[in-house]
């Protein structure tokens, strides 16, 4: 024996949400999965089940995945009611079968939120996140127009905190876990990252107003500060960023209400 990882065999029942398309009715279907290796990842188990289904001429379970190492944010199962499964600070693809016991019934559902419409089985459409970023999740800098990188020093604590926020993988587990299906954590992470850096200051107010506005428009729920999001987040993004964004938002609303604006029309450079 090499170590405590030597494989054990286990069998479980998967209770999987099957739904052919957004308009089709959905239901749970049980699939026995036998003699699995405990070193298998959860998604590898789905691969195995899918190969079996295919051999039996049935349609395999559609599920989203890509990198399989917890960085792309594609995988999106809710396992026994918890987005990304039982682990803490990891994504579905980093969940291994050793987290389960022989004989377990494992309920697998898609991330559920109205703003993430179901595509098929366990796959949902998270393009709402892209729309929020398109509304303002950037610093407007044209390629080639940047000053020398070291001409803008960034205090290390700020840079580190910005990186904490930037670690978000855009998976949507925060929305899936929040009792209100609120996207606050995702939006707060982006707003905070850019708001913490000097480069992000000129558009700071505009950015938070635009992004929060877009989020509201897209049908996400409202935050009631329950902190399920940060607990489910595979990157353990802190809900402190939500407080930070709330502050930014209040300030920006005040300032945009009071700030004088120039009457000059654009294009002065002719």
């Amino acid at each position: 024996m090499v170590a405590d990882n030597s494989s054990k065999s286990l069998s479980v029942t998967l209770r999987v949400w099957r739904q052919a398309g957004p308009a089709a009715p959905g239901r749970f279907v049980d699939y026995p999965a036998r003699n699995l290796n405990s070193n298998m990842s959860f998604l590898e188990m789905l691969d195995v089940v899918n190969d079996e289904l295919t051999k039996q001429g049935e349609e395999p379970i559609a599920f989203a995945h890509d990198c399989r190492e917890g960085i792309c944010g594609t995988c999106s199962c809710t396992i026994n009611g918890k987005p990304h499964g039982p682990g803490h600070g990891i994504a579905t693809c980093q969940t291994y079968l050793r987290s389960f016991k022989d004989g377990d019934v494992i309920v697998v559902e898609p991330f559920r939120a109205r703003a993430f419409p179901l595509v098929k089985d366990l796959v949902v459409d998270r393009s709402a996140f892209d729309q929020i970023i398109q509304a303002g999740g950037f610093i407007s800098v044209r390629t080639g127009a940047a000053p020398d990188a070291n001409s803008i020093p960034v205090p290390k604590p700020d840079a580190d905190l910005a990186m904490d926020a930037a670690a978000c993988i855009g998976c949507g587990a925060c929305v899936a876990a929040c009792k209100n299906a609120s996207a606050m954590l995702f939006v707060a992470a982006k707003v905070s990252q850019l708001g913490l850096l000097p480069q992000g200051q000129p558009e700071r107010d505009q950015r938070v107003l635009a992004m929060v506005g877009k989020m509201d428009e897209l049908g996400f729920g409202n935050c009631t500060n329950q902190y399920e999001c940060s607990a489910a987040c595979p990157k353990s993004i802190s809900h402190d960023f939500i407080a930070r964004m709330n502050r930014d938002y209040l300030k920006a609303s005040l300032r945009s209400a009071l700030k004088p604006t120039s009457n000059a029309s654009g294009g002065g450079a002719g």
């Binding site: 809710t78 559920r112 179901l118």
Partner: peptide, 12 residues
């Protein structure tokens, strides 16, 4: 709003 935002409820 928050109820509507969930859509289909989780079974677990």
């Amino acid at each position: 709003e928050n109820r509507a935002a969930r859509g289909t409820a989780y079974s677990v």
